[in-house]
Design a binder for these strands. Structure first.
Length: 722
DNA sequence: AGCACGCCGACT
DNA sequence: GTCGGCGTGCTC
């Protein structure tokens, strides 16, 4: 088939990489140019070269370039010597490049060598032109299964991203050494575990039974406070393994992964599950991933990268604490682990378990829509497991001037002092070092920049500066109530630790925060000061927890502020002993606020349900779907003008994007330092989400293909709206 | 994105 | 006649 081409054949097999001398290359080039001029273009099937595979000589290849207009397959010819290795799913290298390519030694060469995946072997190509040959099969390991490809495509579609970008997240980089190492022999399926503490939940036992029987139940699980959750997750995994299927658990961080890992080891012993986290080096990670792909290991627990783990015959996908923002992938197209697992559950028809101490609006929606069933404990069980929650609100603070000056109200003092008699006391303080944000002293509305609405911060003595645009504010007054006095809204962990240390000189003070995260603390009296998410687990549980500056958390100008605050409070409270053992939580926040009430009643689900109703009314996600389009004003306008948005799409804005300040990290969707960007939100009602994603993807592809100058960033489900 | 192709004007 | 400007379009 290569002969009909008629391209000159002049020695040298001309495979890539050889450093041939210049003269023959130029000769060939000239000859080719001359030929082109006088020979009419008959379309040959392939370019001449080595003999091709006799059976299925065409390889359909996905080139590994994240650019959207290349988001399709390209056909290559399979040389005979690669026939055996060039199976679907393997990594390949191909020549891919511009124009009609260079000609060298009589063989056409596209551009440079780039990586790709062989997706399919076929008898013929539907491409009319001549096919280039595969340059190399990188390894015979079929890393991209049909299931994984289908999942990656679904994720790319959902997020208006390219398949190659998703595959970069889904398939780890190759390590030849890890590939050579044989994976362990698979162990036989274990027998079904007992229900353990699942009996505390109304349908807990039934859920495990369904998993063990090979069923595909879908549940939103409101976990009771306390340390049992990791064992409960492990039992769900074990029940799935008992049915002969695989299971996947995604958790927000390495600490949580380690807990589930330990629980699985306790329940199943070694060798039945893999731990996939960022901690391991690339080679070890790839080896683990391969063991999963090869079916040697049937269960996986890991952080968000594990959401794509190629578990064989998947029976259960589970996610813990889906409200944690580390479940959002940082790289394009920024998929969320919850949504990826939802797609997997749908594609693989497997069981789905979303669990947490708290409840997101998205989780509530899964229940509300009837897609998942609630897995909850009765009120009696909740009361038995949860600590007593007390609030310190404005009125208390007003009556308590002295304590307020010291930032610790009397009730809080008492709770800490009492708690320290019985064990460790957790003090949760918001992040952010010493830089205090400011709020109106009278009505507590956050103080905002009048130019860009960014948060005002007190940098150094007295001077107020905007945290977004850096402008100074000389004459602030509150636009809500007309007040003129400001107060510090957030004080960092270190200062609080110092204050408390002085107040209780006999007690050790430990801090856990971004830099030094403590895993556990002993059950002896100590003050443990921590930022949200970094709380160590206390042996035997904390005697008390003090949640400071609660209204500061609620003051964030974010749709999720309430849900987030509640989630963090509940996460701290879940580490405290039950109220039957005198476990107490004191939250310094207005008791009339909805999240505070939900904390007092320990009712995160009720909170999420009410939030969901409100979002539906306002047309906010997740009830409607949104996408953010950002870039220069001109580029955004042009993009939106060209995009064929669905009929029911609604464009909000554009509004200016806060600039990236020099020296601060640039977040995706933020302008390069010094540039002025705008952001428009596009909103569609339920049901039009995929149409919106498709339209944005098409528009973006067209834009890139045109080589349009200024970049436009598209993000589905932007996390920071409102 | 690259990168080659091609059509047009200046120079040998 | 030939070299090389950049505008356009393709990449199996």
């Amino acid at each position: 088939m290569s002969s009909e081409n008629g391209a000159p054949r002049d020695g040298g097999d001309g495979t890539d990489g050889g450093a041939e001398g210049a003269p023959p290359e130029q000769l060939a080039l000239i000859r080719e140019t001359v030929r082109r001029a006088d020979v009419p273009r008959a379309k040959p099937r392939t370019w001449r070269g080595a003999a091709l595979a006799k059976d299925l000589p065409v390889a359909r290849v996905l080139v590994d370039k994240g650019v959207l207009h290349l988001d399709r397959y390209f056909d290559y010819a399979v040389p005979e010597e690669m026939d055996a290795d060039a199976q679907p799913g393997v990594r390949v290298r191909v020549r891919f490049g511009a124009g009609r390519g260079r000609v060298r030694e009589g063989r056409r060469e596209g551009g440079g060598l780039i990586d790709g995946y062989l997706v399919e072997r076929r008898a013929e190509s539907d491409y009319a032109g001549p096919l280039a040959a595969l340059a190399q099969v990188v390894s015979p390991e079929p890393v991209l299964s049909e299931e994984l490809l289908g999942l990656a495509r679904a994720v790319a579609d959902r997020y208006a991203g390219s398949l190659a970008d998703v595959l970069q997240l889904a398939v780890p980089p190759r390590s030849a050494r890890a590939e050579r190492r044989p994976s362990p022999e698979p162990l036989p399926a274990p027998s079904a575990p007992g229900a353990g503490s699942w009996t505390r939940y109304e349908h807990g036992g039934a859920f495990l039974d369904a998993l063990a029987a090979g069923g595909a139940p879908r549940a939103v699980w409101s976990a009771l406070p306390g340390p049992q959750w990791s064992d409960e997750l492990a039992r769900a995994v074990a029940a799935t393994l008992a049915s002969g299927r695989g299971a996947l658990v995604v958790v927000p961080d390495g600490r949580a992964a380690a807990r589930v890992d330990a629980a699985l080891t306790a329940l199943l012993g070694e060798g039945r599950h893999a731990l996939l986290t960022a901690d391991a080096g690339p080679e070890k990670r790839y080896a683990q991933w391969l063991a999963v792909r090869r079916g040697a290991v049937r269960a996986v627990v890991g952080t968000r990268a594990a959401m794509f783990a190629p578990v064989r015959d998947l029976g259960l996908v589970a996610i813990w604490d889906d409200g944690d923002d580390s479940h959002s992938e940082q790289h394009a197209p920024q998929p969320h682990a919850r949504d990826v697992l939802l797609l997997r559950a749908a594609l693989d028809r497997c069981a789905f378990l979303l669990g947490g101490w708290s409840c997101t609006v998205e989780a509530a929606q899964l229940v509300e829509s009837g897609w998942a069933r609630p897995l909850v404990a009765g009120r009696e069980e909740v009361r038995r497991a949860a600590p007593l929650v007390r609030t310190v609100g404005d009125e208390d603070l007003a009556r308590d001037e002295a304590a307020r000056a010291a930032r610790l109200p009397t009730l809080a003092w008492q709770a800490v002092r009492e708690g320290l008699r019985h064990g460790p006391v957790l003090v949760q303080v918001p992040r952010r070092g010493y830089v205090p944000r400011m709020a109106c002293d009278r009505c507590r509305a956050p103080a905002r920049c009048r130019h860009c609405a960014g948060p005002l911060e007190a940098r150094d003595a007295g001077a107020l500066t905007c945290g977004w645009c850096g402008r100074e504010e000389a004459a602030w007054h509150c636009p809500e109530c007309g007040g003129f006095r400001l107060r510090a809204q957030v004080v960092g962990a270190r200062r609080t630790a110092e204050e408390l240390g002085r107040a209780f000189p006999a007690v050790p003070v430990r801090t856990s925060g971004r830099e030094h995260v403590l895993d556990t603390v002993p059950g002896t009296p100590a003050l443990v000061v921590s930022t949200p998410g970094a709380e160590p687990v206390a042996e035997g549980g904390y005697a008390a927890a003090l949640l400071l500056d609660g209204w500061a958390m609620l003051g964030r100008p974010d749709l999720r502020a309430g849900e987030d605050a509640l989630r963090r409070w509940i996460a701290a409270g879940a580490l405290v002993r039950p109220q039957g053992e005198h476990g107490t939580v004191v939250v310094v926040a207005e008791p009339t606020l909805r999240p505070v009430q939900a904390l007092v009643r320990w009712d995160p689900v009720g909170h999420a349900v009410r939030e969901l109703a409100e979002r539906a009314e306002l047309g906010f996600p997740p009830v409607s779907r949104m996408a953010a389009v950002s870039g220069t004003g001109e580029a955004v306008a042009e993009f939106l003008g060209a995009a064929q948005l669905p009929q029911d799409a609604e464009v909000l804005g554009p509004v200016p994007v806060p600039p990236t300040l020099p020296g601060r990290p640039r977040r995706p969707g933020a302008p390069p330092p010094g540039e002025h960007w705008e952001r428009a939100l596009v909103r569609v009602p339920p049901g039009s989400g995929s149409a919106l994603a498709a339209a944005l993807k098409t528009a973006q592809a067209a834009r890139m293909a045109r080589g349009a100058g200024e970049a436009v960033r598209v993000r589905i489900d932007p996390p920071d709206i409102g």
